[in-house]
Design a protein around this nucleic acid. Structure first.
Lengths: 201, 201
DNA sequence: GTTTCGTCGTGACGAATGTCACCAACACTT
DNA sequence: AAGTGTTGGTGACATTCGTCACGACGAAAC
């Protein structure tokens, strides 16, 4: 019997997947959580064989949770399950010790199989997405550039970002300018869009 | 037997919900589509009693599809099913003839009940969301202001927007300025964020 | 030990943005 | 007939943005 932990923020999706997985004779969903920061606790308590993690979740994002899980409970395999096939996501997932990466676009029928293969120690990755992740390349942004860009997401002005980060305005402008050019954009908004699309943000 | 059409772009979610609904003795999913522009055709062919529509879909968005369905197949009740509880969405859904509005945050167990009530001619709406939609108020933006704001979503400059819309740059700047002030923002980016959050975009 | 890279900073510059006053045409309401 | 709101436009203005050149420091790489 494969013991599964399911982390997914949308109740309805979580419930539906749980019900479906429980129909499989060799799979049992032993824990469900709706927030990223509840995963670690539940995992330690219920000791699942496979953790099925959504990426976009309140509390903590699934990618960083995967890293923790890999440390805290190495015998538990991590299978990421996400809406967005962003190359950066796959990259980060693999770097964080996940063994698999599935899209919600895939047919449900493949899910049980993917779980079985993950539990058996196989790596489950959409080959097309893997190829794209390799060709797209990693984020060209330095940590600071990324941080400044992220801070500008809500429409803050340079001055506001500088205050929040305890930097001079000039420095913020320079970092932003560097970020804009590195992602090959024309302005802040475009830079944000492409960074998001590639999963760098 | 309640005949249901399910429109939802994520294969896995669609499959899981279909499987669950088919377990109900009085509900049958007679058609599934993954794109907004396939809904009308499928509805005319399979004549469902209830159409379960996601809002965010490729092809056409569920809200405009609801309006068409209400015209083409008035005996078919429309139940919107969406991730985002944006007041503007609810408002538009009701204006477009939908009979219900459910969030994917709701437990799966409520879904079948909601479908039954919708089929019976009841209106199914989360009361909290309804209250919010009423208090938030409708979009303060004129059609043109909205259009200009939407065009700026991808990071286009004023000049580019002006070219696309066959307007002078000054006019675009004026519309944008008006939009920014009406949504109570400080700049384009902030205006886009709040407009999106309220479902006005 | 030099080079490279990231970080932080300044000053300056042109371009883009956001605001404002003002005008004109049109539709719709009262 | 007057008032109101949307749309389209012009010109001017201060502010913000994005770029560039340049310098300084520390850490890591060679």
């Amino acid at each position: 019997m494969i013991r599964v932990l399911l982390a997914e923020d949308q109740e309805m999706v979580r419930g539906a997947l749980t019900a479906l997985l429980n129909l499989e004779s060799d799979i049992e969903v032993v824990a469900q959580v709706g927030r990223g920061d509840e995963v670690a606790g539940a995992a330690l308590q219920f000791r699942p064989d496979v953790a099925l993690l959504d990426i976009e979740m309140p509390g903590r994002d699934g990618l960083s949770v995967a890293a923790d899980l890999d440390r805290l409970l190495p015998e538990c395999q991590v299978l990421m399950l996400t809406t967005f096939g962003r190359p950066g996501y796959l990259r980060k997932a693999m770097a964080n010790g996940a063994s698999g990466f599935m899209l919600k676009d895939a047919p449900v029928t493949e899910l049980a199989g993917a779980i079985r293969r993950t539990a058996a120690g196989e790596r489950v990755v959409d080959p097309q997405l893997a190829a794209q992740a390799l060709s797209e390349g990693d984020s060209p942004l330095s940590p600071r550039e990324l941080e400044v860009l992220a801070e500008s997401e809500d429409g803050s002005t340079v001055a506001a970002i500088a205050r929040r980060l305890f930097l001079s305005e000039g420095t913020v402008r320079n970092h932003l300018s560097a970020a804009i050019q590195k992602v090959n954009a024309r302005n802040r908004l475009e830079a944000l869009r492409t960074a998001r699309a590639k999963g760098w943000l």
